[in-house]
Design a binder for these strands. Structure first.
Lengths: 193, 193
DNA sequence: CCAAAGTCGTGACACAGGTCACGGGACGGT
DNA sequence: ACCGTCCCGTGACCTGTGTCACGACTTTGG
């Protein structure tokens, strides 16, 4: 992907929430590092430090918790173009990851170290506003997910997912979808919409 | 509760994350309104607008979703002294509440209207930083709750709750606790720790 | 001080979903 | 072209949890 494309995706993403001058965006942009990852590659691995926060330019990732005894995976989030994804707690507290983040497709990302993140916030208060909006949206999405897990059956959750993320249906295998919805692969397979 | 106590609780709460000068805190404090609520009173009611965000000085509240057909309640959060609680989405978007917030005990709160919230953020960037930290903590707590719902049995979730919130066990009836854990009152009653 | 409402345990039964096992098909790497 | 790996459906069975019903105790409010 060419340089001007990467920049423009990030800029458009930020400017959905806060307008930026050219100089301000130049300041933002220089804190990020571009990286590529291959399918099956781990961008974050349990037990390892998490040096970056990731803004995805293309591809698809999953954020996953793996039960160490049973090896059973629970997927906290999928992420794709124009999304942020991370074991944010480990990143933000500079501790070892308890989650893993794995590429389901070849993925390009703009990466932001915690030091750069803090420099960005300190140097440009607007960006703090931007992240407050982002995290708030994530918090509210989490609340909806909690409610959905508490009140809805597997079939209802499946329907909700299909309605809200139809494009992902084509890209993620049912096994992964089951791990996201919190049901076994077999039960998901038996659900007719 | 006396005026200086109310102020000092709020100030201590904020200063756990960001230090404030006396003038800065005076600016913060004047945007809040003090209000009292009685047990069983609704601070937020489904279908109504949500004029305030609430910082609790004393008492105990629950944030609850009620299924309209079955009347079954699911509790998203308990809140007590030193906590914020609200149907934040309705508050922030100035829409009607989909959740309700009800007092389980007589409760005192400092209330912040959305206009005052925005004035506060605009007038004192530090406060934006404070709320970013708060919302981030809430987001991460939500992630942990999602994982807990996906991976743990009712009994394990009960144990986790007891371990993390022992004080609440004395104050909230089992019925409410069941609605928080996402199990029926009867199953909770059958669980031996 | 009494009535109404809330709290809590427990038994009987139903059912959604988990687990285990199998087979067949698609795909990727060598 | 082949082999291993993943993907997906399906049957049989098991189990955790929901639902309904009942009774006893405690708290609350007028």
């Amino acid at each position: 992907m060419h340089n001007y494309m990467m920049q423009s995706k990030l800029r458009q993403h930020i400017e959905k929430l806060v307008p930026l001058t050219d100089e301000e965006f130049a300041f933002v942009e220089k804190h990020f590092v571009y990286m590529k990852f291959k399918k099956h590659q781990f961008m974050v691995q349990r037990g390892e430090p998490v040096p970056y926060n990731y803004f995805l330019l293309s591809g698809l990732t999953k954020l996953v918790y793996t039960n160490e005894e049973t090896e059973k995976q629970s997927i906290l989030a999928f992420a794709m173009e124009d999304w942020w994804d991370n074991d944010f707690e480990a990143y933000y507290t500079r501790t070892k990851a308890t989650l893993s983040m794995e590429c389901l497709e070849d993925t390009e990302a703009l990466c932001l170290s915690l030091d750069d993140f803090n420099a960005l916030r300190a140097g440009l208060p607007k960006i703090e506003h931007f992240f407050l909006e982002k995290v708030t949206a994530g918090f509210l999405a989490g609340q909806r997910r909690i409610l959905s897990l508490m009140t809805s059956s597997a079939q209802e959750r499946y329907k909700q997912f299909v309605a809200q993320h139809p494009s992902l249906l084509q890209r993620v295998p049912k096994t992964q979808l089951a791990a996201y919805l919190g049901v076994s692969r077999e039960t998901l397979s038996r659900l007719d919409l």
